[in-house]
């Protein structure tokens, strides 16, 4: 369904090439969910942008992305990409209220999306819109369809965005922090909805999130990004209870509220800025388990058990 191999994203600034994302690889089948976690600015959203073909003309791209039969999205033309977005990919945005056009009623906006994605006529699209709204938990779809986005709450707008995303029965859904601007109840509602929709349509989902709780509950695989590098990836259960990379350790340590000592490690420093070339590991300055090798050379991803980790502590596949 999704096969990303060695994806690297870079931009050019003043003749220098600044890498934003380096060597990200993963594979996802139907019905599976990949959670991408990491701090702000670590490149989580960039992965979804690359998967949507948004970076094709704006950034330097390497590697390959195969999505729903399109063998390399990075080399695809505009037409192919827009065809793919219409028919195979559903996207759920970060800021639901800002993502709906303020001057148009929900009905017109949903009709437009449905007409584009399914090829239904305008009138039929209105009926289908009402059906979709019921599916995402609205009891009075007629009333909602007549409203403007600013008359709805964030959670309601996000449910409408989910309805739009699943309108074309997608094979892949990309959710870019779908719960970040919502209250706790709405968050749970949206995630439950997504889970239900996934069971119904069996789509593969990439869930970018800060919410480790939801990531643990809904994802089969987790990928941890740090400063544009994939530092660890693996089965959700294994990764969260037995994290290997020092960054993952502090992340989950903080989440499970472990000892004071580990928490203090979190605030040890900040990630290097992107245009700052660091010869070694990018987590070096903050790492509590660093060794001399870390400063000299960047670690590569090595396979350990069912997962992968990029850390010199695990060089050669064994814990030193």
């Amino acid at each position: 369904m999704i096969d990303v191999a060695d994806l690297s994203v870079s931009i050019r600034k003043d003749k220098a090439v600044i890498p934003l994302l380096k060597n990200v690889s993963f594979r996802l089948g139907p019905g599976e969910t990949l959670g991408i976690i990491g701090e702000s600015g670590s490149g989580k959203s960039l992965v979804t942008y690359a998967l949507l073909g948004l970076l094709n003309h704006t950034a330097g791209l390497e590697g390959s992305i195969a999505v729903c039969g399109c063998c390399n999205l990075l080399k695809a033309g505009r037409k192919e990409i827009s065809q793919l977005r219409r028919q195979k990919i559903g996207y759920i945005p970060q800021n639901p209220q800002g993502s709906l056009t303020p001057t148009r009623k929900i009905k017109a906006q949903m009709q437009e999306v449905i007409a584009v994605k399914t090829g239904l006529r305008w009138k039929e699209a209105a009926n289908y819109a009402a059906e979709l709204l019921v599916k995402v938990g609205f009891s009075e779809p007629g009333r909602i369809l007549r409203m403007f986005p600013h008359q709805l709450s964030g959670g309601m707008c996000q449910r409408i965005a989910v309805a739009m995303a699943i309108a074309g029965k997608p094979e892949v859904v990309l959710a870019d922090e779908p719960t970040s601007s919502l209250d706790l109840l709405s968050k749970t509602e949206i995630m439950t909805l997504l889970g239900k929709a996934q069971k119904e349509y069996n789509f593969a989902m990439v869930l970018v999130t800060h919410d480790l709780g939801f990531a643990l509950k809904y994802c089969n695989t987790l990928a941890v990004l740090y400063s544009g590098r994939l530092v660890e990836m693996g089965d959700t259960g294994e990764l969260c209870f037995y994290p290997r990379h020092p960054y993952s350790k502090s992340l989950f340590g903080c989440f499970f509220n472990e000892t004071q000592e580990r928490q203090s490690a979190l605030f040890h420093g900040e990630p290097p800025v992107f245009n700052n070339r660091v010869p070694g590991c990018r987590y070096f300055a903050c790492c509590r388990e660093r060794i001399t090798a870390c400063e000299v050379q960047e670690p590569v991803l090595v396979r350990i058990g069912t997962g992968q980790v990029a850390c010199w502590l695990y060089d050669g596949g064994e814990n030193r």
Binding site: Y91, S99, L100, T101, T103, K117
Partner: peptide, 27 residues
């Protein structure tokens, strides 16, 4: 603005985005 990006990601073409999303907001 984000709603233009969202419309584009939902498969709307440039002309539709202009006529339905950008220009009405200028009125």
């Amino acid at each position: 603005s984000p709603f233009i990006k969202f419309a584009r990601l939902n498969g709307a073409g440039s002309f539709k985005i202009m006529a339905r999303h950008i220009l009405p907001n200028c009125i």
